[in-house]
């Protein structure tokens, strides 16, 4: 084995340190544990939802170093040293993030299960500086399926939060 390859980890559980919402989490997990399962099953942060586990619904959206990704199709061990933000880390204490407040005001959800993913995706959409016209919001929110069909209200919430941001 070449010297400049890191040590082999696993398949048995190995120590993995993640930084989630600014907090250090020392986990002992197999390399095959996805970031999503690490959050939900090992770090006691079930706000991130598992809708499909196949990258087809967006319910598991989290921010890694500020970028939105589906946490179900990535391994936790790939993200040691990264800054991970989940829905639990969005509000400032009791003060809601403006996007959360907008979702509440515009009723951008019903059952609430896709909602953490929608909100994180929307926060990222603003950070990406996507145009905030209706068509653009709908396109760049299309990675988050809402089976309750709250799309219109989601678009309204994102647009409203976007206006505040500017």
């Amino acid at each position: 084995m070449p010297v400049d390859v890191g040590p082999r980890a696993g398949p048995h559980p190995v120590p993995v340190t993640l930084t989630i919402n600014g907090m250090r989490h020392d986990l002992t997990i197999e390399p095959r544990v996805t970031l999503l399962d690490a959050l939900r099953e090992y770090a006691n942060l079930p706000g991130t939802k598992k809708g499909c586990d196949q990258g087809t619904c967006g319910a598991c959206t989290v921010l890694v170093n500020g970028r939105r990704i589906d946490s179900c199709l990535t391994l936790a061990i790939m993200h040691t040293g990264a800054r991970i933000t989940t829905i639990e880390g969005l509000a400032d204490g009791d003060r809601l993030h403006p996007m959360q407040a907008a979702f509440l005001e515009h009723d951008g959800f019903q059952c609430g299960y896709c909602t953490p993913g929608q909100i994180l995706s929307a926060v990222a959409l603003l950070a990406e500086k996507r145009p905030l016209d209706d068509a653009s919001i709908r396109e760049f929110m299309s990675g988050n399926i809402c089976r309750c069909g709250a799309y219109k209200n989601i678009v309204d919430a994102v647009a409203a939060a976007g206006k505040q941001n500017v």
Partner: peptide, 10 residues
């Protein structure tokens, strides 16, 4: 299935 993981910058 279980697997081992490693990483490299080379």
């Amino acid at each position: 299935r279980p697997f081992a993981y490693t990483r490299t910058a080379s």
